[in-house]
Design a protein around this nucleic acid. Structure first.
Lengths: 246, 246
DNA sequence: TGGAAATAACTTGTATGATAGGTCGATTGC
DNA sequence: GCAATCGACCTATCATACAAGTTATTTCCA
């Protein structure tokens, strides 16, 4: 019963590449199906049993393949319902980056530098393309930050929301996802940096940097927005050094 | 047998959030274990059976959790061996982006714009920090591109290798990963753009744009590198329009 | 005694079959 | 016509079994 199929890989002499398992094949078959049928977000997939039959493997294999794709946010599974194609979402990227940070494969500065690269673009585009509602929203978020300089957790959430809001105003759906992933990966290191700033004045300085960005975007001035962003990142970098990173 | 544990979630009245399954819990428990024990790349995890015992669930559940983490490249599994913590790798991000492109949640221009944001930074850093060996490598890659203007597949690979090499020269390990993800996600749309350039001259123009970037980096001139990159992206954008995107 | 080959213990990969419980459309009763 | 009910289908989980890969141990021979 175990040998319905030919061996997966003909025992390659090479060592490094891990041999393909049936689950791997199933994953490929499923993604190929999605692509081949041009399925779009929300479209339903065939049931696990059907795939199992098509591929000539047990449902166990299909199940693991489905779960893998579900973990990668390519499909969404719920009990009783057929799996469906999932919307794009930065959470996988965020998780990947978080893992890289936690296992010390990259450090916070490097993450900040990537943010700087991306956000230099988002603030520029936001200053050009933002709607009035978005401009108001940014200013409102900054106001909220002013109110909670003592509450690190809330501050962090507002901070993230602020940067994501800018990315949304850039009108490129890829940017909010990237920014959300890069910022939320730093949820763990951020508080350490923040704690370096003991007095209110020092913290308000950071909030004012955000305010300057919001105002420049509201004013539709890309250059001023970039400068304000640069100041923001310089402050952050300074905080990182104080916190002992690098 | 089925009810060893209390119900996972107390039936929240909210609709949208999918109820947590035992596999989800297992995934969290495993990542927590990695983090809690400060495991680093290559460190081995406890066996599936052990986790199953700890969490009081069947091996099936742990198996699906392991497979999910394996799909996200957080751990690496191979038959017979215990799973181990996996090195950071852009392939998950690439897959996520590829899926977003295929399902038309983002379009090629938006992807290119994100690349522009990131690569503007990588060429700048590369011009400053590149070693001599890296400079030579970049020039060699361009030379290889000159030789295969007729072979789209090889050209695409060299193209990706070139941009990743620049990112490596930036000395921030996050950048090669991001660039690789963004570029390889476009493996499918790239050929269409290339095909717009029928004659050799038109194709060589693109290669020359790459050459200019390599030379600016080799010369250690960040500004020239940025300008050359801008030209490269303008050509690409032009190609996209010709290919009928947007 | 040193090293290589055989072995035992453990681990992952896959299959099978069973049950609980969620979802959704069709049917029925008012 | 509408709502409650039912049934078919589907996923979530469990238990068990066995094949096949890995690793440490032990054995055996030179």
């Amino acid at each position: 019963m175990h040998e319905r199929q030919a061996p997966i890989t003909p025992a390659q002499p090479t060592e490094t590449p891990p041999p393909q398992t049936r689950v791997d094949n199933a994953i490929r078959a499923i993604t190929d199906h999605i692509h081949g049928q041009s399925l779009k977000v929300g479209d339903k997939l065939p049931s696990e049993a059907r795939f199992a039959e098509w591929l000539g493997v047990s449902r166990t294999v299909i199940r693991e393949a489905f779960k893998s794709l579900s973990a990668m946010r390519i499909i969404e599974m719920r009990a009783g319902r057929r799996a469906q194609v999932c919307g794009f979402d930065g959470s996988v990227i965020a998780l990947s980056l978080t893992h890289a940070l936690r296992t010390e494969q990259i450090n916070p500065q490097q993450m900040w530098d990537a943010r700087r690269a991306v956000e230099t673009r988002t603030v520029t585009l936001a200053a050009i393309r933002r709607s009035d509602a978005e401009a108001r929203r940014l200013l409102a978020l900054v106001a909220q930050m002013h109110d909670c300089v003592d509450d690190l957790a809330r501050m962090t959430e507002h901070d993230i929301a602020f940067h994501v809001a800018i990315a949304e105003a850039s009108r490129n759906p890829l940017f909010p996802v990237l920014v959300a992933a890069l910022t939320s990966a730093m949820r763990e290191t951020n508080p350490m940096v923040w704690r370096q700033r003991r007095d209110d004045e020092s913290r308000q300085e950071v909030v004012r940097a955000h305010e300057a960005i919001a105002q420049a975007i509201a004013a539709g001035d890309p250059e001023a927005a970039c400068n304000a962003l640069a100041r923001h990142f310089d402050l952050a970098s300074q905080g990182l050094v104080m916190a002992g990173f690098n």
